[in-house]
């Protein structure tokens, strides 16, 4: 494979990736385009950026998006109120506008001398028009500050990772500029690898029982929020800490609250799933195979 001269992401020690994801990351880096990552909550979208930064030894800049975030804030903020205040009470020379221009996260990533990883986290939290406002900036990796007649150009095109929970649909024009990857909930063998990374000393039968219970929970269609990787990791941690005997795990599913976060899901689990399970196991114990 001829990929010389390019940063090759292989997945860091504590972050196991699928082949498809590694490929998508490398394509995004090589083409200098933003990588848009989607997937169920808890599949490690945000951690991906951290992992890329660690693996490639780059600085990570995180821009957390909230519902009130405006695209402009990511570029720069012109602190007019401070300037007004200084003009009245301060001794500073207010004619130098530059000192009132503060670069936002995107601006910092462009201005950085070395290549950085920029994480734009949960882009779908912001207003519908937010992604559209960033189109040009992400395309050309530069923007203009009219107040100082300055253009900020990316010294090194940053590696941009954008995560989305699909709470809002993103506009087509924005999508067209991105490399896209959908992180699925890992299949059992990949999941085993992931758990092993987090708990290197985990006993085989505990791991096996936990995964069985986890995937059978995921098969319930009525759950509003199915458990995913991060919940499984938490759960296994509890199981290890409480020293639950492994034979109880898939039968009783202890500490299910760690896996199911919604009240309705938990109720459904207790009232329907467990009862059915107990009934069928009781039947199996007393009367042998069903007639």
């Amino acid at each position: 494979m001829n990929k010389d001269g390019f940063d090759q992401f292989k997945g860091s020690q504590d972050y196991v990736t699928s082949e498809a994801l590694r490929n998508a990351v490398n394509v995004a880096i090589a083409l200098g385009r933003p990588l848009l990552v989607r997937g169920e909550p808890g599949t490690g979208k945000t951690l991906l950026a951290h992992s890329i930064a660690r693996d490639l030894n780059k600085k990570l800049i995180v821009w957390n998006i909230k519902s009130t975030t405006k695209a402009q804030e990511g570029l720069y903020i012109y602190d007019t109120v401070q300037r007004l205040n200084d003009s009245r009470f301060g001794d500073k020379d207010v004619s130098d506008i530059k000192q009132y221009i503060k670069l936002g996260k995107l601006g910092q990533a462009f201005a950085s001398e070395e290549k950085v990883v920029l994480l734009i986290d949960e882009v779908d939290k912001a207003d519908l028009e937010f992604p559209n406002d960033l189109l040009n900036e992400l395309d050309e990796m530069s923007f203009y500050i009219p107040e100082t007649y300055e253009t900020i150009n990316a010294v090194q095109r940053p590696i941009v990772v954008i995560t989305s929970n699909a709470e809002k649909e993103l506009p087509d024009a924005f999508l067209r500029r991105c490399i896209f990857h959908y992180i699925e909930v890992p299949d059992p063998s990949l999941m085993e690898e992931i758990v092993n990374v987090h708990f290197p000393k985990i006993k085989n039968n505990l791991l096996h029982e936990a995964l069985t219970a986890f995937y059978s929970l995921r098969r319930i269609d009525n759950l509003r929020k199915k458990p995913s990787t991060s919940e499984l990791i938490d759960w296994i941690q509890v199981l290890i800490a409480s020293a639950t005997p492994h034979e109880d795990i898939s039968r009783q599913v202890p500490f299910a609250g760690t896996l199911l976060k919604k009240e309705t899901d938990y109720d459904y689990f207790v009232n329907n799933y467990m009862k059915k399970k107990q009934a069928s196991s009781a039947a199996a114990n007393t009367s042998g195979p069903p007639q």
Partner: peptide, 21 residues
């Protein structure tokens, strides 16, 4: 020269061309 086999092409093309699961 990013790809050496069909497998690479599958993921490469999907990442670039397809924007929604």
């Amino acid at each position: 020269g990013y790809i050496s086999n069909l497998n690479d092409f599958y993921y490469l093309a999907r990442a670039i061309l397809v924007k929604s699961e």
